[in-house]
Design a protein around this nucleic acid. Structure first.
Lengths: 224, 224
DNA sequence: AATTAACGCTTTGTATACAAAAGGTCAATG
DNA sequence: CATTGACCTTTTGTATACAAAGCGTTAATT
């Protein structure tokens, strides 16, 4: 199994809590690998900012409220831009993919049962897929490259846990707005709608921050 | 010596040319280290996009004209934002540092002799310092984190080689405009001036792209 | 002569052993 | 009793050895 992906997932899912020290030996034993590949994985995570260096070794990064605000500011900037460019350069195929992702997102929301982890994971996945299609539709791979390394992920994942039905439906509506703006090549509308959408997400995270931090292990079942 | 820094510098300075394969063994011999720290350095560079993975090993990344346009688009977005935020949140100390960097930039430009590598290096350094002060003055460390990993660096470095006196002076003037906009807390002006400044830099790179690519080794004299 | 298969060489991926540094504990001394 | 210093343990940093996977070259067969 790939050490990098494993550790990253574990951090995102909360299996390794913020502040927790990541010892090479213990990870090596857990993944049944030697320390060498573990070290490489850790170096990568470090350069993405998911773990912070200690005097010796690293620990899982802790995000303050301020961090979250700043990271979301960055994300609105980049994804807002991506949406505006997508509106200019989208192909018919891009539109198809966006519709596909959004339809699945809608279905997942309809299937949604309060606090059911699997349905939350579905929702998270299709939401992410929708955003990814847009980012790749903007035809600037470097944006994609950076956004994929933007460190927002860990808390976002768990934030959906606290969405109620209304908020999910609202999120879906905004997706539709974004989609049609991009389809109509209305660049500025796409940018604004996306920006607003991300701010709404940020507000959710900030509103439930204390609770979110308390979800630690969202039961791993995606291991192979 | 630190393998990561060494290899990165070598790529930026053109010692390792785009497309060149980086073998672990040969790097290890060159740096008088074993393969282990080399591998870690390479993994980091890979996650920053400075080298691209091959089937086996990595090679120095090659940037097309399109890449450069897209990377500069990203950079205007981020640094334009950074300038606008810096205008809002700058401290007196920030202003002092900006002035300091810019004064040295001016001196370096006055000392400038055509095609003298040391004077070009000075100019590059103080220019970079000015930009860094602004980015850190925006009080969003995440912006800094990403911009420092934005992959623009390699060609920018060499682009100064082709600036003539007029262009250097113009660049200095724009710096002053940016500085005073930030000092006056004129956020939008700071953003626009910065954006324009970066576009000018981009145009320089694009105009001399073929020539820039041909500068390979800017004579290493920064080795220890 | 051309095509394919096999062998060997080169280079990466992984494990392990050894060196060095950091942190903690215990004892000695002021 | 507190503070400091030395030693001991733990964990990281580096080197090296070994396994496995590409790649090229050569030879054999059609």
């Amino acid at each position: 199994m790939d050490a990098y992906k494993y550790i990253k997932e574990a951090i995102i899912h909360g299996k390794y809590e913020p502040g927790m020290r990541l010892g090479e030996e213990s990870l090596a034993k857990e993944l049944k690998l030697s320390r060498t590949p573990i070290r490489e994985a850790i170096k990568q995570l470090e350069s993405e900012g998911l773990v912070t260096p200690l005097k010796r070794g690293v620990s899982v990064r802790h995000f303050t409220r301020e961090d979250i605000q700043q990271i979301y500011d960055l994300r609105t900037l980049l994804e807002g831009y991506a949406a505006s460019q997508a509106a200019l350069y989208r192909t018919d195929e891009d539109i198809e993919k966006m519709k596909e992702a959004n339809d699945r997102y809608e279905e997942a929301i309809e299937r949604y049962k309060e606090a059911d982890l699997n349905s939350i994971k579905e929702i998270v996945n299709f939401n992410q897929q929708f955003h990814e299609v847009i980012i790749s539709a903007c035809k600037n791979p470097h944006i994609y490259f950076h956004l994929s390394k933007v460190v927002v992920v860990p808390l976002v994942f768990r934030s959906f846990y606290w969405y109620d039905e209304f908020e999910l439906k609202r999120s879906l509506e905004v997706h539709k707005t974004i989609l049609s703006a991009i389809q109509n090549q209305d660049s500025e509308r796409a940018r604004v709608a996306m920006t607003e959408h991300i701010y709404q997400g940020r507000d959710q995270v900030l509103a439930h921050l204390e609770e979110i931090k308390k979800i630690h292990v969202l039961k791993e079942d995606t291991h192979d």
